[in-house]
């Protein structure tokens, strides 16, 4: 019975890993922008949920009505005014990558610094939906379950969008080759901006959900950016379901490792699994490349 409960909590954590990686997969996998300030959207969503809840008792889920559009617009502006001039200017892909890394690294510092000045350094957290739910005879926390459900729903929706709609087809064309996509009359700048902005918006939503069960502070963003990168790379760049699967795999390995081997080794097991996957499948688990 304990083993089943452990597996279940691993699955929930895995869902969260998938959730935080989906947005990055849009930004890096589709819009082809390595955004090191990606995790700051999570921080923004988390702080919004926290302050709305603490100051005005606004339901954290409702706070998404504010934070998600703001993150969307913010990321769109970043793409439009900071990143696309670099695309136009760049002579080749390497120069573009170097420039985007420098700029988004700078943004990371700016956002983190602003949050620190504005909201101070303390760890923040609040209690919301931390209620036990009986799931197939095992106890899980409702807030964690919700993040998991959101991850699955979002991953499936994105998968469907990319596979089965015109818009999705255009986005996939951009992901594969932006120049060729332009030739077949895809509005590359606009759709790339859309994918980038949507990625940020998803991360803000993830921030809201994650803030319900994990505490956070002003410097938490980069931690999640790096976690998301691992998941995206492991699942295969641009692969939404791969992203979810990779997250689940990592979550399961973590929980089982903690229970069967040694909780002290959970992160080591995670990274070892990641490295192993890359050595066996150098383009990620679910990529056909």
């Amino acid at each position: 019975m304990i083993l089943f409960e452990v597996v279940l909590s691993g699955v929930l954590v895995g869902g969260m890993y998938g959730l935080i990686a989906l947005g990055l997969n849009l930004q890096y996998g589709i819009a082809r922008m390595m955004n090191l300030a990606y995790g700051e959207a999570l921080m923004g969503g988390a702080y919004t949920a926290f302050w709305f809840f603490m100051l005005w008792r606004i339901d954290p889920l409702a706070s998404m009505l504010f934070s998600v559009p703001v993150a969307f617009c913010g990321n769109w502006l970043i793409y439009r005014y900071l990143l696309s001039p670099l695309i136009r200017r760049a002579a080749n892909q390497e120069i573009l990558e170097a420039d985007t890394i420098l700029v988004t690294f700078g943004l990371l510092f700016v956002f983190q610094g602003l949050a620190l000045v504005q909201w101070g350094g303390e760890y923040r957290g609040y209690t919301y939906l931390a209620v036990p739910i009986d799931l197939l005879g095992a106890t899980v926390a409702l807030n964690r379950l919700m993040a998991f459900v959101a991850a699955v729903v979002l991953a499936l929706a994105l998968y469907w969008l990319l596979r089965s709609t015109r818009l999705g087809g255009a986005l996939r064309a951009i992901a594969i080759d932006p120049v060729a996509a332009q030739l077949v009359a895809v509005d590359v700048p606009r759709l790339s901006a859309l994918a980038f902005a949507a990625g940020g918006a998803i991360m803000a939503a993830a921030g809201t959900l994650v803030s319900m069960f994990l505490s956070f502070n002003a410097s938490i963003g980069i931690v999640y950016t790096l976690k998301a990168l691992i998941v995206v790379i492991m699942g295969g760049v641009g692969r939404m379901l791969g992203c979810l699967m990779a997250g689940l795999l990592l979550g399961l390995a973590e929980a089982l490792g903690a229970y069967l081997v040694d909780p002290g080794l959970t992160l080591a097991i995670n990274f070892a699994l990641f490295l192993l996957v890359l050595l066996v499948r150098p383009q990620g688990l679910f990529s056909r490349g």
Partner: peptide, 13 residues
């Protein structure tokens, strides 16, 4: 410092 350095990065690029 963080804000200033970040802005410097953007300006440099």
């Amino acid at each position: 410092f963080g804000i200033a350095l970040g802005i410097c990065f953007v300006v440099i690029v």
